Computed example of a mutant assay.
Amino acid sequence: MGKFSDKYYLNKAKLLKQLIEKSYKKGNFTLSSGKKSSHYLNCKPVSLNGEGLNLISDLFLELKDSRSKAVAGLTLGADPIVSGLIVKAASQGLGLNGLIIRKEIKQYGTKAGIEGPNLEEGTLVTVLEDVVTTAGSVIKAIKKLRENNYVVEEVLSIVDRQEGGLEALEDENVKLKSLFTIKDFL
């Protein structure tokens, strides 16, 4: 059936059903990018649910570049996904670290902008995101990781809204791999 397992396609169908029921709304919305939209996706009701997070983690584990030694994301949207994926990897005996990127560097203690284990310079890191619109926030995460001498080649997202994010990431030499696009919800 392709490069993915049968379980992958089954889990993908289950996840889409949950997202449609719990995360998708139609109306008039302003997105974090500032754009207006008649479609709104908030994946947190699914990613903060045990079954939903388990599905996302299974799917992302299969989608992720096997060379990647860590996953990272900008707080808050990526926090549950990063945690879910590293736990899922550990349960399968796979070594995978997680990094959480702060929106603002804390002004006390170590003044860290990235939380998590200290990894070697040049470590390949996969960035996780729930919804990509213009990719503005995910590009901030990529830049912060690169400033700390990590290598970023891919972003995994639950949904690509297809509003320029793919192209913006290509400009950063990063590949976007999304489980779904906005068309799956229409």
Rank of each mutant, 00 (worst) to 15 (best):
N11P: 04
V131R: 00
E129Y: 05
L124F: 06
S66W: 11
A70D: 05
I56K: 02
E120R: 07
I100C: 04
H39M: 14
A72D: 03
I114H: 02
K111Q: 08
G93L: 10
E129R: 00
K44Y: 03
L85Q: 03
V138S: 05
L41M: 14
K106A: 03
G73V: 09
T75C: 04
G77F: 03
S57H: 04
K35F: 05
L31V: 12
I139Q: 05
G34Q: 11
Y8R: 07
I56L: 10
N42F: 11
K111C: 10
V125Q: 04
E120H: 02
V138R: 00
S83M: 11
S66Q: 10
G50M: 10
G77D: 05
L124R: 02
F60R: 06
L74T: 03
G52M: 10
N11I: 08
D130Q: 00
N118D: 14
P45R: 01
I114W: 08
A78W: 01
G95K: 15
T134H: 01
K14D: 09
V125K: 03
N54T: 14
A89H: 09
G27Q: 06
S32N: 13
I86K: 06
S57M: 13
K44G: 06
A90G: 10
K140S: 09
D79M: 01
G98K: 05
V87T: 15
S83I: 14
A89K: 08
Q107L: 12
G109R: 03
T134M: 06
K22E: 08
N118W: 11
I56F: 12
S68M: 03
G116C: 05
L48E: 15
L48G: 14
E51K: 03
D79H: 01
G109V: 11
L61W: 02
L15P: 07
V82F: 05
A72G: 02
G116A: 01
K35E: 11
A135G: 01
I20Q: 15
K106S: 02
E51R: 06
K88T: 07
S32F: 02
V46T: 14
L41D: 13
T75E: 04
S91P: 07
L85S: 07
G27N: 13
V132P: 01
C43L: 08
A70T: 12
I139H: 04
N54Y: 15
S38G: 02
S47D: 01
L74S: 01
V127A: 00
S47T: 15
L10C: 09
L16Y: 13
G77N: 02
T110L: 12
G136I: 06
G34Y: 11
L85H: 04
Y8E: 07
I81F: 02
K64H: 08
L94R: 15
L124T: 09
V82N: 01
V131Q: 02
H39P: 05
G116R: 00
D130G: 00
A78D: 01
T133R: 00
Q92G: 10
R102G: 02
I86N: 00
V132F: 07
L19Y: 09
V87Q: 13
S23I: 09
R67T: 12
T134W: 01
S66E: 15
G50I: 10
T123Y: 03
N118L: 15
L48I: 15
N42T: 10
S38M: 13
K64R: 14
L128V: 09
L16G: 04
L59Q: 06
S66G: 09
T123V: 04
F60E: 03
L99I: 12
